[in-house]
């Protein structure tokens, strides 16, 4: 994911956390909130365990140093929302992609219209100007597979990467991306990703837009092809992807096959 964002979509400030503890995750989110500049677009991607307390309805991310079902060692959705609120208050566009069980418990419903077939340039200009605080979640309140077709990814991340990799659109909004990913996931596994907004974080129906910078021009060497990412003429200057930190946390699946008892006969 980190390579894809850097190489194909021009993310130039990527922070990668692997097997992060609760403290490391909170510190990274806190630092991110402090570093965001007014026109920054921020993407936070989480791949790891999730937990939902069925009695209280509270959702959590489960860091590597979590102890059993002790929820005090998990990262509460409310804490994540607080951090996202801080980030969103400072930046232009904020997108959280959560690939974990019960990740849908993070979001509230909220949809965007897709770009019109004609005059789509104006649409992109319009949604780029408006503030957005969006969440893409792998599943609603359900368990999600952690090793789809032995790819090492969940179905959600598998199809998300596919979409980002093979999309031939120069501009790709989260609404377009999520619609395609949701379709692909729902068509292949019994899981329905969800997309929405973070309630109360100042979302103005804007759109986080992925700009494809991996462009080839026939007859021109690749190193000479440059894509200017802040080309959208706006009243307020918007510089997409100037600072786009990413938090990628990889944890072992709930039942790591490595720790299953050896099958014997």
């Amino acid at each position: 994911m980190a390579d894809m964002l850097k190489n194909r979509y021009g993310f130039d400030d990527v922070q990668l956390l692997e097997n992060a503890t609760r403290r490391e995750m909170l510190i990274a989110l806190d630092e991110l909130g402090r570093d965001v500049l007014p026109n920054d677009n921020v993407l936070v991607y989480y791949a790891g365990h999730g937990f939902l307390d069925s009695e209280t309805g509270k959702g959590y991310w489960v860091p590597v140093d979590a102890v059993g079902t002790d929820q005090t060692t998990f990262l509460r959705n409310s804490s994540i929302r607080d951090e996202l609120n801080t980030i969103a208050a400072r930046g232009r566009h904020t997108l959280l992609i959560a690939d974990s069980c019960f990740s849908g418990s993070l979001l509230r419903s909220g949809t965007r219209s897709l770009p019109p077939q004609t005059n789509s340039e104006r649409y992109y200009q319009k949604v780029a100007q408006k503030k957005s605080v969006q969440i893409m979640a792998a599943g609603g309140v359900e368990y999600v597979d952690d090793n789809y077709r032995s790819t090492g990814h969940s179905p959600f991340t598998h199809f998300l990467l596919n979409e980002l990799k093979y999309s031939n659109q120069p501009l790709l909004t989260v609404s377009e991306l999520s619609q395609n990913v949701e379709k692909a996931v729902a068509n292949n596994v019994s899981q329905v990703p969800e997309t929405g907004v973070l309630q109360g974080a100042g979302d103005e129906l804007g759109e986080f837009i992925f700009i494809n910078v991996d462009v080839s021009v026939s007859g021109v060497p690749a190193e000479r092809v440059k894509v200017k990412v802040n080309v959208t003429p706006t009243e307020t200057p918007v510089t997409p992807y100037v600072s786009t930190p990413e938090v990628v946390i990889k944890t072992a699946p709930a039942a790591s096959p490595n720790l299953l008892p050896m099958p014997t006969l």
């Binding site: 365990h49 079902t69 368990y143 709930a254 039942a255 299953l260």
Partner: peptide
């Protein structure tokens, strides 16, 4: 094996 919850797995 089949995960039943983040803690429990049937195998």
């Amino acid at each position: 094996h089949h995960p039943l919850s983040p803690e429990w797995t049937l195998f």
